[in-house]
Every structure is written in structure tokens, then in C-alpha cells.
Amino acid sequence: MKQRDDKILLGHGSGGRMMHDLIENLFLKHFSNSILDEQTDAAILNVGSEEIAFTTDSFVIDPLFFPGGNIGKLAVCGTVNDLAVSGAEPLYISVSMIIEEGFPMQGLELIVESLAAEAEKAGVLIVTGDTKVVNKGKCDKLFINTAGIGRVKKENRLVSKALDIQPGDVIIINGTIGDHGMAVMNARESFNFRTSIESDCASLNQLIREVLDQSPVKFMRDPTRGGVATVLNELVEKTKLGIEIDESALPILSGVKAMCELLGFDPLHIANEGKVLIVASEKDGNAILEILKKNELGLKSAIIGRVVADHPGKVVLKNETGGRRIVDSLSGDQLPRIC
């Protein structure tokens, strides 16, 4: 690690550049192995003749309840989606809770009911768990960790690895961006914006299965912390190609757009919890778009850009006014504790 990082800062957990550096320079340095080094959302493991995907995620969101969901629903969706974008069919999840002394039982029950309801909706079983209670003030209300496993079909095993990306491939998203981050921010801070923005928090495994069953997909990732910009930057870094995004094609709710304008945020950096970015060849793009649009989680799906041979390693946005600008990964700490 560089000398300046002698303490952990909030930015190290933001999903952007600082976290990327922390993982590279500390975690991978000590944990490195061929599976982890792939750095996909879920590890793909050989167990006998089967392949399974395995993932884990912790949830520290503040506030616990927000428009469109709560920490319980989010804890299921997050893990289910990490498995689904890895090409796996999610099967079983664990739920571990760290609860602050004095937490109201009624609130806990609401959260547990949401966990159960979302697991049922996503078709996964909660099969193991753990409970810890810590002294008042030693954690903030409630933290949840979930881990999950899923079965990987042979034909989908490479979908998270971005192996065959070519110039001309299209980039698709299944709906509006930035809803989750802005809904949580509006619920947390005292802006009192009169807006109906709700988190997009949803389990995407069924939607993704419909796509994978019907069409070849080259890459998938859920743009959570760090937003669409961070996923696309990781992709150009990995493929040594460029990406061009068309601003006028980006689906963004007017409320989200307005909040971002006021607060100086780029919607491309804002977290989503019910979105998947899909890269496919140009000839398959429209078919995938049609499949997505038939599902209620994909009504506003759009092709937002394409892979290009120009500007390798860079994501460039062609804006509505005809100008062009770079879209970088998120640096530092924009919105802490949004998941």
C-alpha cells in the first residue's frame, strides 16, 4: 500500500477507484488464487461434475427502510443478482445478522418478513444463518450479510468473464439508472424534495434466465455501487477496447435527473439495485431488447452504447449537445452506505 493510506477512509468502500486499489493492493496480494483473481461477482467452482457459483455480500444501508424496499429485501436481491449475472441459477442463500442492542423487535420482524418474501419471489431458499447482538453504539442498528450459491449451466459459465467482446457489440440496460442511490439519498438527507423516486431494488434472476435461454450474451454485470460508469470502465480496462455511450439513449427518470443536476452528481455514478448491463453482438441486440421489454423489470430497456476500437481503455459519452466527454470511474466517497 502507498504511504498515504495509513487508515481506512469511507472512500475505500465506495465501489470506485479507491476500493479497487484496496482490493488490488491488499486483499488480492494476500489471498490471490486462480479463482479469486478473476474478480467476478461470484466465484465459479468445480464440485464433482457440476459447476456452482458462490458469492457473498454485506448490507449496511442507512436508512434501513427506504422508498421501494428495506435492508432485508436488498440483502436478498443483492446476492441473487450477483449469482444471476454470473450466469448461475440462484438456489440457496444464508442470512447473518449483526444487531445493535435495543433494536426494536417490530422493525426486525418487518425486515425478516421482507427477506422471506423476496427469497420466495426469487425462488431461493434461506438455508442457514447466524445472529450476533453487539452493545449499543457498537454498530449502527442492523447489518446483514448474505451469501448464496447457484448452479451454472455449461453454456453460461463464461458470461461474467468478458472473453469475446468485439468492436460493434452493443451495451444494453434493462431500465432507468440511478433510482436506488437517489431514493436512498432523498430518504436519508433532509432535502425534502417532493419526488416519487423509488429504489429499483429487485431480484433479476428470472429476467436474466429468460435472456440467457433465448440469446447469446457476451457479458453481464449489475451496476450497483459506482454505477454504470464503474462497470463500463472495468470492462474497457479488461478488454483494452473503448466504449461509446449515447447520452440521449440513457433511460433516466426526470426526478433522478433533477436531483443529480441539483446535487452535482452524474447519474452514471449512482447505484442501482435492479439493473443489469448486458453486452451482446449487434445482431443479437434487438432480440435481447425485445425479451427484456416483455418482462416488467425491463419495460424501459434500451441500447445505450457500443464497444469501439477507438480510445482503448476509455469510456466516452456523446452528449445531447453534440459534444464528447470522458466518463471515469467514481473517485472517492460520493454516497456512503447506500447498500
Binding site: 477507484r17 480510445h311 470522458i326 471515469d328 473517485s331
Partner: peptide, 25 residues
């Protein structure tokens, strides 16, 4: 860089250096 700024112009989202770094194609 914005993640590890030396001068103030790199820190603020409105700073000339940060803006160049972020947006200039």
C-alpha cells in the same frame, strides 16, 4: 488524481484539473 489529489484544483468537482481529468476526451 481525483482519488489522490496533490493540489486543490484536483479535489473539487469544479476544479480545473478535476474537470480536465474527468471529462476531457
Amino acid at each position: 488524481t481525483p482519488a489522490d489529489p496533490v493540489g486543490a484544483c484536483m479535489v473539487s468537482g469544479e476544479g480545473t484539473c478535476a474537470t480536465y481529468y474527468k471529462y476531457r476526451v
